[in-house]
Amino acid sequence: MRRFLVQLSVAAIFLIVSCSSRKIQSGTISGDVIKVMTYNVHHCNPPGKPDVIDVDAIAAVIKQQGADIAAVQEVDVHTGRSGNINQAEQLAAKAGFGFYYFGKAMDFDGGGYGVLILSRYPLTDTITYSLPMAEEKGGEPRVLAAATATLPNGRSVRFGSTHLEAYNNTSRILQIKEISRIAGEVTLPFIVAGDLNAAEGSEVIRILDADFTRTCYKCPSTFWEGNETGAIDFIVSRPKAAFHVLSHQVVQNKEASDHMPVVAALQLKQ
């Protein structure tokens, strides 16, 4: 009986050690997986409610997805139409992100309007690149906000948030070419996410595909505005050998914004 108890104790210790070892291995694998999100939040103005700003609703949608890093477009900072609040700061706090970077695209209504990076990881080397516009009149200034995110395992990736021109295709083409040029100078694995205002099959996406790998092809619709729908919000990465796409999802939420969140899991290869 005593011998049996000793054997049982040894077996139990072996089982505990084995379980601990599996947890460590699992943690190592998950540390290389980055859950990425892109979301055009329409300055936190819900569809059909022109005078309402609901940061809490947008933050709840973002928080629910559990992303590690997110690209957010159409963000107001201290603008009159949004009640002079700092939406970038509030979204970071309410959605549970410890780090954020706001890239202002333009002055608007007493404040700034642009794109945002939300991150659970420390951000360094932040910069906002102005993107070109066509010479003809019309359109809004656009930017690429970029930062380096340091993962818990010590590895780093470059991440960018952008929003291309909505109504001028010539500007969009110039802008995606500039993003490709910028990406060509980046030595780290690079993820770019945002509202590209361009559908699959367009020249913009053909240019994009020459330098980046998308997380989806024949993608589900990401926005709705009246009778208009389509996939115009994308998550892309480069170089191709740097990432493995584990999943891609469009979250079916039409209450908080006129765009739906796009979420993808990317595994950073060794």
Rank of each mutant, 00 (worst) to 15 (best):
A265G: 01
A67V: 05
E255L: 01
Y39W: 02
E74A: 09
D125S: 14
Y167W: 14
T126I: 08
V61T: 05
E200H: 04
I207C: 01
R142Y: 11
H259G: 07
C219E: 11
T38H: 14
Q267R: 12
K177D: 14
P122H: 06
I127E: 12
V55K: 00
G139Q: 02
T28V: 12
I29K: 03
I29H: 06
H244K: 15
F212E: 14
Q64F: 06
R2I: 05
H163R: 03
G230I: 12
R155E: 13
G111H: 09
S9P: 00
A105V: 11
D32F: 08
E185A: 05
I191F: 08
R142F: 09
P47C: 05
A166D: 05
K63W: 02
Y217G: 03
A199C: 02
H43D: 02
H42G: 00
A199L: 13
R142L: 05
I173K: 14
L91Q: 11
M133A: 12
V17P: 06
L123M: 04
K63S: 09
I16K: 04
L164G: 12
Q270Y: 09
F243V: 14
E89Q: 13
V77F: 01
A183V: 02
R2T: 07
I191N: 03
G139E: 02
V186S: 02
P46Y: 04
D54W: 00
S171Y: 02
S221T: 12
A145G: 10
S9E: 04
D233L: 00
R206D: 11
D195N: 04
H248I: 12
V17R: 12
F108R: 09
I34A: 07
S161H: 03
Q270E: 15
V72Q: 01
L123F: 04
A147S: 15
S30D: 15
A198V: 05
C19L: 14
R2W: 05
T128N: 07
V115I: 05
H244Q: 15
P132I: 03
V33K: 15
D76S: 04
T162D: 01
E136F: 00
A88W: 08
F159G: 14
V36Y: 07
T38V: 10
I24G: 00
L164Y: 09
E203W: 03
Q267A: 12
I173L: 15
F99H: 15
F159R: 10
P239G: 07
D54P: 08
G139I: 00
D32K: 15
N40D: 12
V33A: 10
N86Q: 05
H43M: 05
S156L: 03
S82L: 04
E178L: 03
V143M: 01
V75E: 10
K104G: 08
V33H: 13
V41K: 01
G80D: 12
R206A: 13
V52I: 14
N197I: 13
V236K: 03
I13S: 11
Q25K: 14
M1A: 11
P152Q: 12
Y217A: 08
P261W: 05
D211T: 13
